[in-house]
Nucleic acid binder design. Structure first.
Length: 226
DNA sequence: TACCAGGAGAAAA
DNA sequence: TTTTCTCATGGT
């Protein structure tokens, strides 16, 4: 039996071929759907294990009540914040997580101050917030602050497995570093790549019954550059 | 009715 | 150290 290793070192041509294949299939996605870096940060927390349509509802409710900013969120009782974001699910948990994130941002002087930190330091700071894991932190850095970090999510893992490029269960950092070392450090490329992977998951694997195991299902097509 | 979604952290094994 | 459990609404 082959030993299980956590190696992931794709070459640039391989990843760019996959990227072009996705781009040919789905066209430009131009993410993230948000009006400000702070809205990206809030959306990144709210979308944890949650469909974006539900997140939009919650963000709309924050906008309607003029509470989509750090100070407003921190001034709300946690129960009231939870009620506002209820459509996003896990609302008690996420209300506390949003407060934790806002506490941190306020302590360092806001997102502007975060963007002025060395990227590795900004990432460590975000990861120190209870409720902000690697994917959420990288969403904020890439889509909110234009830091070239590659976001790994469940769809990315599934696609890599389907393409035969990785097992899919490698540690987050192994996969992230694999992408970042192979690709040019361009935020726009990383954003579009991630958005295309999500779009692929939605379009190609729309049948729910198949989606859970789509990494192994032939109905989820392999991507090839035209 | 049952399953799943743009995770993360705590608890159990 | 690895696996399992918890958190929850809304669409299909």
């Amino acid at each position: 039996m082959a030993e299980k290793t956590d190696h992931f070192a794709p070459d640039r041509a391989q990843l760019m071929s996959l990227y072009r294949g996705l781009l040919d299939l789905y066209g430009e996605q131009s993410w993230w759907p948000a009006d400000s870096p702070f809205e990206v940060a809030v959306g990144a927390v709210l979308t944890q294990n949650t469909s974006w349509s539900n997140v939009e509802r919650a963000i709309d409710r924050l906008k309607e009540t003029d509470t989509l900013d750090c100070d407003a969120i921190l001034s709300l009782p946690t129960g009231q914040l939870a009620e506002l974001i209820r459509p996003a699910g896990y609302y008690n948990l996420k209300a506390q997580r949003l407060r934790n994130l806002c506490d941190y941002l306020r302590s360092i002087g806001g997102l502007d101050a975060l963007s002025r930190l060395p990227p590795s330091q900004a990432r460590e700071g975000l990861l120190g917030v209870k409720g902000v894991g690697p994917e959420t932190a990288d969403d904020i850095l890439l889509f909110g602050l234009d830091v070239p970090v590659f976001v790994i999510d469940a769809y990315t893992r599934r696609l890599l497995q389907r393409q035969g490029m990785a097992r899919g269960d490698e540690p987050y950092e192994v996969l992230r570093e694999g992408f970042e070392q192979a690709l040019p450090a361009e935020p726009d490329l990383f954003k579009e790549y991630h958005a295309l992977i999500v779009e692929h998951a939605k379009q190609a694997c729309r049948k729910r019954a198949l989606c859970a195991k789509c990494g192994l299902d032939p109905s989820c097509p392999k991507i090839t550059a035209s």
